[in-house]
Simulated scan of single mutants.
Amino acid sequence: MSLGRWLFGIGGDLTWWYVPAIGLTYAVLSWWIGHRMAITQRRGRRTGRAVWVALILSWVCAIGFGFTVPDRVGDELISIVSLAAGSAFSTEMSIALCNPLGIVSFTLAFIALGFAIANGRDPRPEEDELFDTDSGEGSGMVPHPLA
Results as ranks from 00 to 15, higher is better:
Ala50Arg: 13
Gly120Ala: 08
Pro125Lys: 08
Arg45Trp: 06
Thr47Asn: 12
Ile117Ala: 05
Ile80Cys: 07
Thr15Glu: 14
Trp17Asn: 11
Ala54Tyr: 04
Phe89Glu: 15
Arg43Asp: 01
Gly12Arg: 09
Asp122Cys: 00
Arg49Leu: 09
Val142Ile: 15
Phe110Asn: 11
Ala50Trp: 10
Leu83Trp: 07
Ala96Ser: 15
Tyr26Val: 10
Ile95Cys: 10
Gln41Tyr: 03
Asp132Ser: 15
Val142Glu: 02
Ala85Glu: 12
Ile103Tyr: 11
Glu127Phe: 00
Ser90Tyr: 14
Phe67Asp: 11
Val81Asn: 10
Trp6Lys: 11
Trp16Cys: 04
Ile39Trp: 01
Asp122Val: 09
Arg45Met: 12
Phe8Tyr: 12
Cys61Gly: 08
Gly86His: 04
Val28Gly: 11
His144Asn: 10
Ala116Arg: 02
Ala112Gly: 02
Ser94Ile: 12
Gly136Cys: 03
Asp13Ala: 11
Ile117Gly: 01
Gly64Ile: 03
Thr15Val: 13
Gly120Tyr: 05
Leu101Lys: 11
Thr47Val: 15
Leu14Phe: 10
Leu14Gln: 14
Glu127Ser: 04
Ile63Met: 13
Thr25Asp: 01
Arg72Tyr: 00
Ser87Asp: 15
Ile78Gly: 01
Ser94Trp: 11
Val60Ser: 08
Asp75Cys: 01
Ile78Arg: 13
Glu126Pro: 02
Tyr18Pro: 02
Ile22Ser: 02
Ser105Ala: 15
Trp59Val: 14
Asp128Arg: 13
Leu77Thr: 00
Gly11Lys: 15
Asp75Pro: 02
Leu3Asn: 13
Thr25Ala: 15
Ile111Leu: 13
Gly136Ala: 05
Gly44Glu: 09
Asp13Glu: 10
Gly66Asp: 07
Gly4Thr: 12
Leu83His: 08
Ser82Glu: 10
Leu29Ser: 07
Ala96Trp: 12
Ala118Gln: 07
Val19Pro: 04
Gln41Leu: 07
Ser135Asn: 04
Gly9Ala: 12
Thr91Pro: 10
Ala147Leu: 13
Ile117Phe: 05
Val142Arg: 10
Leu113Val: 00
Ala147Ile: 02
Val51Trp: 09
Gln41Phe: 02
Met37Phe: 00
Ala116Asn: 04
Ala116Gln: 05
Met1Asn: 12
Pro145Arg: 14
Cys61Asp: 11
Trp17Ser: 09
Phe65Met: 14
Gly136Ile: 05
Val104Arg: 00
Gly138Glu: 09
Leu7Arg: 11
Ala84Cys: 00
Glu137Trp: 15
Arg45Pro: 07
Ser105His: 09
Thr107Arg: 04
Leu57Cys: 11
Asp128Asn: 02
Asp75Gln: 06
Gly86Leu: 02
Gly11Gln: 09
Ser58Asp: 05
Leu130His: 01
Met37Gly: 01
Asn119Met: 00
Tyr26Gly: 06
Leu108Ala: 10
Leu14Thr: 09
Ala112Ser: 06
Asp13His: 10
Ala38Thr: 14
Gly86Ser: 05
Ala118His: 07
Leu130Asn: 01
Met1Gln: 04
Glu126Leu: 06
Met37Trp: 00
Trp59Leu: 12
Gly138Ile: 08
Ile117Gln: 06
Gly102Met: 12
Ile95Ser: 14
Ala147Glu: 11
Thr133Val: 11
Met37Tyr: 01
Cys61Val: 07
Trp31Glu: 03
Arg49Gly: 06
Ala62Met: 15
Ala118Tyr: 05
Val60Arg: 05
Ser105Asp: 07
Pro20Asp: 04
Ala38Ile: 03
Leu108Val: 09
Val19Ala: 09
Trp31Asp: 01
